[in-house]
């Protein structure tokens, strides 16, 4: 079934792109390999304006309050948060590992920068993910062209600016083809 296009409401502030929120959670007690990633990932909904974003986000649980093995994904409308999507298959991501307690603030700063077009890399951004794990949390931002070093450099510099991270934070760039080979 074709999805209805989301449009800004009257008087609302449109975003440069429409976005979709997704959520995934690994069922406890079963190894990941027996489950299809696509089956576990659920669409929460889409938005086209600043005000529509807040209506979703204000009702969502903060990443720091999630338990277990869970992820929030925020991707441009039409891009699935998976390596196999056409927009992602030549791409890569910046990964930042966070000690417990930082995820909620960092995730909010990351997605506000993405929605507000702070990265200045044209059409390159695909989406962002926050992954809640047992001992640490991980945030990442995905872009289309892993081989484009000017773009990945600019994304890294913007991340440093908007996330206000401790100076010793390690940032790692990983291409999706690497992730497929070595998950």
């Amino acid at each position: 079934a074709k999805k209805k296009m989301v449009v800004p409401g009257p008087g609302e502030h449109p975003l440069q792109y429409n976005y979709t929120f997704w959520y995934s959670r690994r069922t406890p007690g079963r190894p990941a390999s027996t489950q299809s990633y696509e089956q576990n990932i659920k669409q929460i909904g889409g938005f086209a304006s600043v005000e529509q974003f807040w209506r979703f986000y204000s009702h969502m649980i903060r990443p720091g309050d999630l338990t277990g093995h869970s992820d929030f994904h925020l991707f441009k409308e039409g891009i699935k948060p998976m390596w196999e999507d056409d927009a992602n298959k030549m791409g890569g991501k910046w990964i930042i590992r966070l000690r417990k307690g930082l995820a909620s603030r960092c995730w909010e700063n990351l997605i506000l920068a993405m929605l507000g077009e702070q990265f200045m890399v044209g059409e390159e951004i695909c989406g962002a993910v926050v992954s809640v794990r047992f001992q640490e949390d991980i945030i990442s931002i995905w872009n289309k062209t892993a081989s484009d070093q000017a773009t990945s450099g600019r994304i890294r510099d913007t991340l440093r600016r908007v996330l206000n991270l401790p100076p010793n934070t390690i940032m790692e760039y990983k291409t999706h083809t690497d992730s497929i080979k070595r998950p």
């Binding site: 600043v50 807040w54 920068a113 077009e117 908007v162």
Partner: peptide, 21 residues
């Protein structure tokens, strides 16, 4: 064309606007 750019403060200020409720 022109890009729609918003800084963090602008976005946060829209959080409690009546339209967003």
């Amino acid at each position: 064309g022109t890009r729609i750019i918003y800084d963090r403060k602008f976005l946060l200020d829209r959080r409690n606007s009546p339209i967003a409720q």
